[in-house]
């Protein structure tokens, strides 16, 4: 318990340092550029304290919880030696963390409204819900596929750049053919899939695998899973827009 408190105290100081830039920027623009008083100072101070405390707890929980479990599972899967189960796990992790992501649910709803006003789908609640669910499922499938591809790449030792650059070319080509309404949503869905809990877990998984598999370098091979997870949704969502 004593050790926990000492660690937390150390990371509390780091969190304060992490948040100082935002506070300076907001204070400077509010007081110097816009020359306006700060509204609701008390709420601002308590909110900032919450942010600092939250960041401290999160970073510590990351170090003692998410990182160790991600790495130990990667290690165990590598020792078990079953590619099938590893890839199943990779898909479940990508799909499962994305399908329930609150940011994605919000964006899917927004996208359905745009599609309805743009005349792509019928102006009814049912059509809108179907469209939003389809979009969510598409994004979750694409993230599952991304993690599977990324893990396969680590196992095989394929260089990351060819796959990513190939993906970029895919995005550029699809952008030319996809209906304009879907393009913005496709680009933003690549960003929302990588949530604050998914990123550390997926990173630990990749690095753990690259450390456990002989001949792989954790630096060159361990990273890259997040890049896949933010690239494939763009391609899949534009495909979804073109099919409908």
């Amino acid at each position: 318990m004593y050790q926990l408190i000492r660690h937390l105290w150390g990371s509390l100081k780091e969190s304060i340092r992490d948040l100082t830039p935002i506070i300076i920027v907001i204070a400077f623009f509010q007081l110097v550029v816009l020359q306006q008083p700060i509204p609701d100072l008390l709420g601002l101070v308590t909110g900032t304290v919450l942010v600092v405390v939250g960041l401290t707890l999160f970073v510590h929980g990351l170090k003692i919880g998410l990182f160790p479990i991600g790495e130990s599972m990667a290690h165990d899967f590598a020792r078990k030696g079953s590619v099938f189960w590893l890839l199943t796990f990779a898909f479940a992790l990508g799909f499962g963390t994305t399908v329930a992501e609150p940011a994605l649910i919000a964006i899917a709803k927004e996208a359905a409204n745009i599609a309805a006003t743009g005349g792509m789908i019928e102006q009814s609640d049912r059509a809108r819900n179907d469209y939003a669910d389809g979009l969510r499922l598409t994004v979750a499938l694409s993230v599952g596929a991304a993690i599977v591809l990324g893990v396969l790449r680590i196992i095989k030792g394929w260089p990351v750049q060819y796959l990513i650059l190939g993906g970029y070319i895919g995005v550029v080509i699809m952008t030319m053919f996809a209906p304009p309404e879907i393009i913005g949503i496709a680009y933003v869905s690549g960003g929302v899939t990588t949530s604050t809990i998914t990123v550390p877990l997926v990173t630990a998984l990749g690095v753990g695998l690259a450390t456990s598999i002989r001949g792989r370098n954790p630096m060159t091979d361990g990273f890259g899973l997040i890049a896949f997870a933010s690239l494939t949704p763009m391609i899949f969502v534009m495909g979804y827009g073109m099919l409908l």
Partner: peptide
Amino acid sequence: GQILLGFVLVLFGLAFFLQGLEQAL
């Protein structure tokens, strides 16, 4: 025990963090 504590810290940490952002920044 430690892993579980880590998950609990992540859970509460993230909730505090988001709440503070919504309220202040």
